[in-house]
Amino acid sequence: MKKFKSAVFYGIITKMRPLIIFYLVEYGFLALIMALMALYTGKVEVGINGVEISSAVFLSVMGGLSFKEDFKAFLQNGFTRRYIFISTFCSFILISAAMALTDALIGNILHHFIKFTMYFGTFYGYNHPFANWLWLTVAYVTFCSIFYLAALVVNKVGKSTSLLIAVGLAGAGLLITYLFRFVFTPELVGKIGRFTLNSLGFMNDGTINLFFPILTFTVIAALFALASYALLRRTELK
């Protein structure tokens, strides 16, 4: 248990420096924009600010690098792949939760004073701070999981095959668009649309269910995490 805790801490502490720099730059930049707005227009209205997107990009990069850097360090220190997987995802969850808390807290406080908008607030309103934090946490973990898996795939199949896979995914995206526009019946499209909206918490009767979007992101993150484990347990040092 002590070793497991140490591995989780390693995953977190070694990311602290870039994380602090990221937040200093991000919120410093935001403060600068607000100061300039106040100076030149006399009021501060930031609108959609992209704070969550920036955090998601940071976590995506961190997810990819976690495999590249930490996997080797953990192998050097005698950890098994199962330990590496569990500790890595625990650190993803803890970092995501901390970042979500920071973003949700600052975002909601600023929302009360200036018209600072956040994605969760825009979709679901600003009266659910706990749900906002939870939603943001699972969304951030999803980004970590996707890019952790992507790094594992690149390591497994190599750069050339990875590029082919990326082209294939882009093609699949186009194919799906084509299917929706020209192949699927309007009924089927309607059903898929309703299912998607329901999974994001927008129910048929016009109400909002905050549990569903959190569950949806949790399921997506879990699927990518499971796929990552399936690959990681066969991954060898190169």
Binding site: K2, K3, S6, A7, F9, Y10, T14, E69, D70, K72, A73, L75, Q76, N77, G78, F79, L237
Partner: peptide
């Protein structure tokens, strides 16, 4: 314990930090 020819350690950490982490792992 295996001391490898290949560098598997985090290159951005200081030597003292590596020592402290190794102490936590072993």
């Amino acid at each position: 314990f295996c001391m490898s020819e290949t560098d598997l350690y985090d290159k951005d950490l200081k030597v003292i930090e590596h020592f402290k982490w190794t102490k936590r792992f072993y």
